[in-house]
Design a binder for these strands. Sequence first.
DNA 1: CGGCATCCATTTTGATACTG
DNA 2: CAGTATCAAAATGGATGCCG
Lengths: 225, 225
Amino acid sequence: MEQRTYNQYCATARTLDLVGERWTLLLIRELLTGPKRFSDLQAGLRGLGTGLLAARLKHLEREGLARKITLPPPARTPAYALTEAGEELGPPILGLARWGLKWAMGEPRETDTFHAGWAVLGLKACFDAEAAAGLRAVYEFRIDDEVFHARVDDGTVEVLHGPAQHPDATVTISEAAFLDVTSRGLSFAEAVKTGAASASGDRGALRRLAGLFRLPAPRSRDITD
Amino acid sequence: MEQRTYNQYCATARTLDLVGERWTLLLIRELLTGPKRFSDLQAGLRGLGTGLLAARLKHLEREGLARKITLPPPARTPAYALTEAGEELGPPILGLARWGLKWAMGEPRETDTFHAGWAVLGLKACFDAEAAAGLRAVYEFRIDDEVFHARVDDGTVEVLHGPAQHPDATVTISEAAFLDVTSRGLSFAEAVKTGAASASGDRGALRRLAGLFRLPAPRSRDITD
DNA sequence: CGGCATCCATTTTGATACTG
DNA sequence: CAGTATCAAAATGGATGCCG
């Protein structure tokens, strides 16, 4: 099957030739926090059938954006990881996320799914390099049964699925409260008060945590323009 | 027609619900350099029929990303412009373009179309704010029969289709040479030597021009990863 | 020129069943 | 669990005709 293309010698169009098809950018989003197995990818993408998922993964492999790996022991199960080229789609994808946080979030709909990893990426999208100047710390986030960690190092941040080796601080929070904090402006302190969250570890690192992310104020797209 | 959605409470997915359909981001790209008429939009998007273009424009209007305007006299003809929300998709789109410049450009194919405006946006995508610190200048680019201008003001740049009011400097260049300069690393000085380009106006502004844009070194996505 | 409507051939997708 | 195979529904592309 011939691959469909916009036939434009334009950097945007060429990029969309590669990743503009339905599901593709969300698939890459899933991989931005680390390798994932076929079934975990599908679980994160309700509505994407196994056939299309397999086709998309093959496409990403063929185009050098992802590769099939074998997870290290004791798992030894197949999984998919981004290549360097794929990883570098992180910034543009987080750019789209930043736009969405400002202009498109609204309230969750009845039919919406939600995964903690998406909110974690949303946080990363709002990371403020200046606010992190001079800070070096590893945070672990335990959100219901999912665990993520963020490694902050002087203006940079790396966010991965799974536990940290040596976290400086650990935050435990319910998924619902995490959603409130990351997308509805609930302060973490309030979440602690209600018992939905708790924190432990280095108090200096914890004190700086909230200031590392600058959530945009949501705006309406209505015709006030 | 029911609008298709990913049904995810995720900023990236919500954004793609709005602009992830085929042609939509390229349509917005066309509008990033200023309002355009229906037929000019179609000319920039070969393969997009009038029906789908009309549908996409309606969708963007309904969603508050674009609006239909009437061009000022003497034109008085209808055109489409981005709203504030639409304009703010510029940075993510230029992020995708930056990725494409690095990982996906290669050589033009026989079947590729090309428009100077795309290369101008590519330039903007590579604008280096630090290099423009303290500079305030308006450049006009005359590329074959298309005219653009860039207004640089201390670390910011604005790029628009059409002539400038009071350009500090004007660059005249053939489309082919502009393509060589913006995507194949040909230096502007060399283009002048071959007679494909010429420049006039404030010499100080011209001297700084080339340094304002940091083109990424193209990379292959092959399995060296 | 600036669109909308219609018809039709192709692709893409979504959903499900099935296999190693 | 990791996919293939299959089929129906939806989106797209291209042509064409219409109308102000």
